[in-house]
Amino acid sequence: MNVLSQLKEQIAATLPNLDLVIGWERGFDPLHHTPLFMRRPEDVERLVIDALCVHNLAVYLPGLKNKKVGVAVKGCDSRAVNQLAREGLIKRENVVVFGFPCDGAADLTKVRRQLGDISGVQSAALEGDLLRVVVDGKERETPLKDVLADKCLRCRYPNALTHDHFAGEPREARVQTDDYKDVVDFEALPLEARFAHWQQEMQRCIRCYACRNACPMCVCRDHCVAQSRDPHWVTQEDETREKWMFQIIHAMHLAGRCVECGECQRACPVDIPILALKRKLNKEIRELFDFEAGVDPQAVPPLLSFQVEEKNINERGW
């Protein structure tokens, strides 16, 4: 029995005890899947799981806090469930987690880069290690590994870290450790080049806040400081500086909380590489406090605690 039918069976069996189960279904075109909210048994039939299930569905959980909700999660998404539960933003006992072995999710920006314009896509098929699409009657293909999201290429947790049901067999992780090479490489650039990089990238920002809305850990929703006038953290001026300020706020509000699901960067309509900021913070949090968000459901978030003598902070040197 394949993973999908096993997952469907598990969901169908649990659905009567739940208000809804969240999964993925085919969206407006064959390359875009969309979240699926299953309430009736017949909804379960529309469920799909493959490399195009890009969304982190844990983002819906805080808004459904008092409902009995099931959710299908990839490995990275499960870290968000753990972290939300640890912070008391969801009740873990109200959530039923359906895990499955994840082979990686496609990055549609990379697909576009490999295959050109995909707006008129007629069909898409994943055959083994190949992604085959038909655009305007012409068939094009690319190896799946060339279009996987960067986060998947360095994935250490392909299987849900927390789950109540698991379909299929757990798979091996692609890598065992994350050396944060991207962060180190970026910091090897001269300071001026790094500053210029962000000026270049951030001026594209249209302030749609898709990065915030897609983030499972951004739970303030209507009370986000980006749109508040009191306090007035960012102005309405159309300046790169203000867009940049918002990204710094977003990154700092996620310090020690970010689970690196990469939703901010995926949701960005103008492809600003904002995950780099969160990666940097996660690298530092790991070095300073030996902490990774959402991995150990019992671990105390580092910025909510302290030690009188900090092992790794040497502030007296200044």
């Binding site: 300071l191 080049a193 500053f195 710094i248 700092m252 530092e284 300073l288």
Partner: peptide, 24 residues
């Protein structure tokens, strides 16, 4: 009693973010 203990962690994390922002 403990305000500066929390501050120390936050400020250290922020200071370490600066190089990636392109700020000395």
């Amino acid at each position: 009693a403990e305000g500066n203990f929390y501050a120390r962690r936050r400020l250290e994390v922020f200071k370490r973010l600066l190089p990636t922002l392109g700020i000395d």
